[in-house]
Design a protein around this nucleic acid. Structure first.
Ligand code: FES
Ligand code: FES
Lengths: 133, 133
DNA sequence: CGGTATTCCTATCGGGATAGTAGGAATATA
DNA sequence: TATATTCCTACTATCCCGATAGGAATACCG
């Protein structure tokens, strides 16, 4: 349960690769091979990370991807949310209600607490922490 | 992301219903109506909770379900794991490896930390905490 | 300019899980 | 016996995920 989609796992592994690589930039194909990830699939993931401003890219020959910031400035939460959106165990974590109990719903606070626990962990780790663990 | 299946949400709401109900026991149909849950679907969920030893049941007329223990003796983690198995963000949280990095895999520790954060929260709350929040 | 390497865009597909449905057998009460 | 309920098994429909395909845009390099 609570399994993390491969999309997110791959994205993080790709960022770890970029953060630990000597080279100034790496191509999608390089990363895919090194990390044993489906190349075409990884392309899309890197595109998503680029849209979110986590990586920069250069096209054409000698192009590739590199981190947009230093690893210590990239919180893991930002990565996860870039890949799969905000942590939302259940619909009612924001304002709205998802069951018939309305605002006084008891489970609701429980779920909000869970979200906070997860967010807290993700906020406490940066990409630097991960590559140095 | 990290959305909790309705199965788990329903299960918890059913247990909350049992814990807060005055009656000695409630039928599946009663709970389904009170909580606006698909009746037949809820039947299966209650069966699962029974198999896990969280609720007791009596068949026949005037039968129904009731909690097997006091709410303060039911950790939320036990409920969640009864409904969807152990918390396992990614395959390698136990011994095995899931990527090509082997045991030294960097992201792995990150995922294990996440699992611990979630487990810690779920261990810290009992059904009593939820109904009294 | 031509060739090549690469990112980037869009569309599609198959499998598996989830959510829900259906029907009825077993069992208890009255 | 009639009725209320849990319990069991099978089925379906839908959605999401992971992956694939093909090619357009763009940059370097001689
Ligand atoms: S409002 Fe979300 S579980 Fe009740
Ligand atoms: S071993 Fe699980 S992410 Fe590397």
């Amino acid at each position: 349960m609570f399994s993390v989609p491969t999309r997110t796992q791959y994205g993080i592994r790709a960022l770890v690769h970029l953060a630990t690589s000597e080279a100034r930039s790496s191509t999608s194909a390089e990363i895919a091979k090194a990390q044993a990830i489906s190349p075409k699939y990884l392309e899309g993931i890197l595109g998503q990370l680029k849209t979110s401003g986590l990586v920069l890219s250069e096209r054409g020959a000698h192009g590739g991807y590199r981190l947009a910031r230093e690893p210590e400035s990239i919180p893991m939460r930002e990565i996860v949310e870039a890949l799969e959106g905000e942590i939302r165990p259940v619909g009612c974590v924001d304002d709205s209600d998802c069951c018939e109990q309305g605002v006084d719903c008891l489970p609701r606070r429980f779920w909000i607490g869970l979200k906070q626990a997860i967010d807290g962990y993700l906020d406490s780790k940066t990409l630097r922490d991960v590559i140095e663990a």
